[in-house]
């Protein structure tokens, strides 16, 4: 059964890694619903957060293929329930519409959104949340005409108390020492 999975991968910050990772999806004809790449808490290590709608078996296979890449340290997959995740959305509406009624202001309050910039022509509103939430605000604002809209890829952290990568790097150091000891 297909469902949403969040794949997280930690890699060295090297040229071409994004391409190496995405071709694993392309080859299996799996669509990437959302993608975010940025530096992780550890300098020099990038974190990829990739959302797919797929069957579990295929996701496991993809995660193993990602991990097989030489410059990837570790990859995980999680269901939405196992992670806390957010997306950010920006909306541009005509300032005129904001002036003419209090509806937009009420919407901003009830959606916990905020205004980033107001000019004579337009107002930029920001909202973070799940896709359904950013979409709901879009649908509301669009009654007044949304001039521009952009939504980010998903970012997510696990519900476990510590960053899995730190734990992983400690394990890997131990593994290398063990392997070195074996050689000696």
């Amino acid at each position: 059964m297909k469902q949403e999975y969040i794949i997280s991968a930690y890699s060295e910050n090297h040229i071409g890694l994004l391409n190496r990772i995405t071709i694993i999806f392309t080859r299996r004809k799996v669509n990437i619903e959302s993608l975010t790449v940025s530096e992780s808490a550890l300098a020099g290590i990038s974190k990829f957060t990739i959302v797919v709608n797929e069957e579990k078996g295929k996701v496991i296979n993809i995660v193993k293929q990602i991990e097989k890449l030489i410059e990837v340290l570790k990859a995980f997959y999680h269901t939405n329930e196992e992670m806390i995740f957010q997306e950010i959305a920006l909306y541009k509406v005509p300032t005129q519409a904001l002036m003419e009624s209090d509806q937009i202001e009420k919407m901003i309050r009830s959606h916990n959104a905020r205004i980033l910039e107001i000019t004579k022509e337009y107002t930029v509103i920001e909202k973070t949340g799940h896709k359904e939430e950013t979409q709901a605000l879009f649908d509301g604002l669009n009654q007044f005409g949304v001039l521009q809209f952009i939504r980010s890829g998903r970012i997510a952290i696990t519900r476990s108390p510590i960053e899995k990568l730190s734990e992983f790097l400690r394990e890997r150091d131990a593994l290398f020492s063990k392997l070195e000891a074996k050689e000696k």
């Binding site: 890699s11 030489i70 410059e71 340290l73 890997r172 593994l175 290398f176 063990k178 392997l179």
Partner: peptide, 11 residues
């Protein structure tokens, strides 16, 4: 002899 992101063989 070693690349931190690559484990050729697991124990």
């Amino acid at each position: 002899t070693k690349i931190r992101s690559y484990v050729p063989e697991f124990p």
